[in-house]
Design a protein around this nucleic acid. Structure first.
Length: 802
RNA sequence: GCCGCUGUGGUGAAAUCGGCAGACACAGAGGACUUAAAAUCCUCCGAUCAUUGCGAUCGUACCGGUUCAAGUCCGGUCAGCGGCACCA
């Protein structure tokens, strides 16, 4: 036997699989299917990261196993290639983003193949390919047609460094998700998708899918549904109805003032009758200067200005109360105005204390001279609500009261906002809309898709926040598709998340030129059976793509209401220092280096063996060596093979147990313990000294999904027929997993005192008798009284003594 | 502030339903082979005490509880990570 030449063996099988198209999904729709999906990479110039390898290795193992289990497996990949990093390097090096993208895709493809992933390479999609983005534009137009696209002039999150408008999701924490600069608020007219229309469906749909609980929870929190009531307060001076949203209508009797967001439209409407309008304007200007970040950081000190000229009337008490403006009320949530109940809301309490406003207790239980009481209790000072102790009852009662008064009704609110769907940059899908002076916004006709990105020399964004496309006259100037007059093309492009919102549909039928995918293929392949990816995509990509999918479902264009039946997430790989891998820390591990030194099989094994798949784990060069030893020891088994088409007595039960363990652990994504079980079996084989051909063959099959190269080679070397990729997964016999004799533990008062070997089917009394007779037990019991004896079959005996 | 998760040897970690804590690895120590080293193979490897050997006690962040039995369940505390955050 030679030393294992992993370079030659891995190259040999990668070439074979490539030429043989071993992993191509079949068109045979009579077979049972498995659609495993991993998040397609963004082809950045840095190449792949070991994190990518871990992210793909999970479903790679599942997919390889499913094929052996007789499934028609669709395990595709592709490239989510639009985006700023490519555009920025295009600007930096003066190279067209198309060229950079092509080079990066080639680099990524090579790296993925070097690791031996069993992707179906005939179905690769590239979101920047015109045959792909044609359909991204097509779906956008369908949304436009159905009223889900609108333009609005509002305060937007704007990144001054990237010169783009960002969605709420992309500017979490007041930082730009791309460059981490501080976001500023800017008024701009931009494109939106009406995702809020689907808020309830997105929430409801979570009930029918199998996502990890924390993924569901994060999505629920993001959608942020709350139930409460809308209540109208009349403004005495002008009769205007001031609508507020509250989750606590039960506290309506405790309202002592009201607050509007500084940008509230009623202020502008009645400027002339507000006596201190100059003061309000100054306050508003001051707030606009603060970034969202500052606004939320300076929580402690409440600021605001009383509106001199507005007085609100509490609809249930008829009492007159002042109205303030303050930046602790946001225009973007609810109605942009609130009723303030200082006795039972911490923020209102702080405000009331600072401005010397009355605090009226309506719920007993706290001490409102010290702080706001937000708990439950008996209603007081609340008219017909007095005496009610249960919050739910109080809310119900109040809803009836305001219903009778005709001043309000129950309502729901969502934290989720509409999706700012635009970028003022070059490298994205052009938005297929034409602006006509007479017809307004007009869709580009479907038969003119794709609306291609025009060739450009200068990709720099405009200083005024305009797309570079705005400088291309030949692109901007066009005829209105409706009336034929001169018109202007929209120059914004779609955000990075557009292309990935439907890519899993395209994989079903990637070369279709008539439809985004045929109904027949979609019916067969959908839903995605198992989707794995990073936690960072749970509130963006996942919500966006579920929204697009549900929209297409409502049009009858996809057969399932949910795109993904199951979703899991892998944990990060940290640097050897235990910190998140990043270029600036210099702790990034390049998968290429690992493949060069140890081979692809070792890399694959290690990323799955290093710890719980769903948890973060630091990289360790030394531990990689352990997996290398394992592969080498498997290779060396070829010298220990004896003829035999059965299991030997020595290994029979271990074989069955290991097959069971590996079969089940893969399904539960417990890859680390599956590998550990195979390592244990290998240790047993070494202890036994020999292995039958049948045992070796079956061992290779269960190891194959993890380490396909070395197992294919050994399968061939020991003279098995065909290739391993075409074998059947091995079965196990539950009965043979049970040992004939087992070890049980004997405890005295819960402390281990002896161990016994007994027959697995021994009767309780016999076991207890044996236990009592054991010399250690006799000694330990001594002259104490036996109070109780507990027997757990197969596990232990516990003798309780006094 | 709110919600969620996690806390186990020198290290990464295991441990179905409450039933032998530390599987499997890494690192370390000793030995075999070797002129030597690497590689490989074998042995040891939670702490303390005892030690010729058998063994004893403690030990899963901390404090308490339930139980014959707790890493696992319950109550409280602390620490770390993630998400949301003036959401009315």
């Amino acid at each position: 036997m030679n030393n294992y030449d992993f370079k030659a063996v891995e190259a040999k099988w990668q070439q074979f699989w490539d030429e043989d198209e071993t992993f191509r999904a079949s068109n045979d729709h009579t077979k049972k299917k498995f659609y495993g999906l991993v998040e397609f990479p963004y082809p950045s110039g840095h190449g792949m990261h070991v994190g990518h390898i871990k992210a793909y290795s999970g479903l790679e193992v599942v997919s390889r196993k499913r094929r052996l289990q007789g499934y028609n497996v669709l395990f595709p990949t592709g490239f989510d290639a639009y985006g700023l990093p490519t555009e920025n390097s295009a600007i930096k090096f003066g190279v067209h983003p198309r060229q950079i993208t092509d080079e990066n895709i080639e680099k990524f493809t090579g790296q993925l193949k070097r690791v031996g992933f069993s992707f179906d390479w005939s179905r690769v999609v590239d979101t920047t390919d015109e045959n792909y983005y044609k359909w991204t534009q097509w779906i956008f137009l369908k949304m436009f047609e159905n009223g889900l696209v609108f333009r609005d002039k509002t305060l937007v999150n704007y990144c001054p460094s990237c010169k783009v408008v960002l969605s709420n999701e992309d500017s979490q924490g007041g930082k730009c998700d791309i460059c981490h600069s501080d976001i500023v608020q800017k008024t701009k007219e931009v494109w939106y998708l009406r995702i809020t229309e689907y808020a309830d469906k997105l929430l409801e749909g979570l009930k029918e899918v199998d996502y990890l609980p924390n993924i569901k929870l994060q999505q629920e929190n993001w959608i942020g549904k709350s139930t409460g009531a809308f209540v109208n307060f009349t403004i005495k001076e002008n009769g205007e109805q001031m609508k507020i949203y509250t989750t606590r209508p039960d506290t309506l009797y405790g309202v002592t003032f009201m607050v509007m967001a500084p940008e509230h439209p009623l202020i502008d409407k009645y400027r002339d009758s507000i006596r201190n309008i100059a003061e309000l304007d100054a306050y508003k200007a001051e707030c606009a200067k603060k970034s969202e970040f500052e606004r939320t950081q300076l929580v402690k000190d409440k600021t605001g200005v009383k509106i001199d000229g507005f007085t609100a009337v509490n609809p249930v008490t008829g009492k007159e109360i002042p109205i303030y403006i303050s930046d602790y009320v946001m225009m973007g949530y609810g109605t942009g105005a609130i009723m303030a109940v200082p006795a039972h809301d911490t923020r209102d309490y702080e405000f009331a204390k600072k401005f010397g406003i009355d605090i009226i207790e309506v719920i007993k239980g706290g001490d409102i001279s010290v702080e706001a009481y937000t708990g439950d209790g008996e209603m007081v000072n609340s008219g017909e609500l007095n005496g009610i102790k249960n919050k739910k009852d109080a809310i119900e009662k109040m809803l009836k009261v305001i219903g009778k008064l005709g001043c309000g009704e129950a309502g729901v609110q969502y934290k989720m906002k509409d999706w700012a769907f635009n970028r003022q940059r070059y490298w994205g899908e052009p938005i297929p809309i034409v602006h006509c002076d007479d017809c307004g916004m007009v869709a580009v006709p479907y038969d003119e898709l794709p609306l291609r990105l025009p060739p450009v020399d200068d990709f720099k964004p405009g200083t005024d926040g305009e797309s570079p496309l705005a400088r291309i006259e030949s692109f901007v100037k066009c005829k209105c598709p409706k009336c034929g007059k001169d018109a202007r093309r929209e120059t914004d492009t779609m955000p990075q998340w557009a292309g990935s919102s439907w890519y899993f549909l395209r994989y079903c039928d990637p070369h279709n030129n008539e439809e985004f995918a045929s109904q027949e293929e979609l019916k067969y392949w959908l839903p995605v059976d198992w989707y794995n990816g990073g936690m960072e995509h749970v509130t963006r990509h996942m919500i966006y793509s579920r929204f697009w999918h549900k929209f297409l479902y409502d049009l009858g264009l996809v057969p399932t209401s949910e795109p993904y039946a199951k979703r899991t997430a892998q944990g990060l790989i940290l640097g050897t220092d235990g910190e998140k891998m990043s270029k600036s820390r210099g702790n990034v591990v390049d998968p290429n280096d690992v493949v060069d030194e140890f081979g692809a099989d070792v890399l694959r094994l290690y990323v799955l063996f290093m710890g719980d798949y769903e948890k973060a784990a630091p990289w360790s060069e030394n531990s990689v060596k352990g997996c290398k030893r394992f592969v080498d020891r498997v290779w060396a088994l070829q010298d220990k093979v004896t003829e035999g088409d059965d299991y030997s007595d020595a290994l029979r039960s271990s074989m069955h147990k290991t097959i069971k363990k590996v079969t089940e652990d893969i399904e539960a994504m417990k890859f680390n313990t599956a590998i550990a079980a195979m390592m244990s079996l290998l240790n047993e084989i070494y202890a036994a000294g020999t292995i039958t051909k049948k045992e070796f063959r079956d061992f290779l099959i269960i190891l194959y999904p993890f380490a396909p190269h070395v197992t294919e080679e050994l399968f061939q070397l020991i003279g098995c027929e065909g290739i391993l990729s075409h074998q059947e997964w091995v079965s196990f016999d539950e009965a043979l997993c049970i040992d004939k004799t087992i070890e049980i533990v004997v405890q005295i008062n819960g402390k281990l005192r002896a161990k016994l070997m007994i027959a697995a089917d021994a009767a309780k009394d016999d076991v207890l008798a044996l236990a009592r007779a054991d010399e250690n037990i006799v000694k330990a019991v001594g002259d104490k009284t036996v109070v109780k004896e507990i027997y757990v079959p197969g596990k232990l005996v516990n003798i309780v003594v006094k």
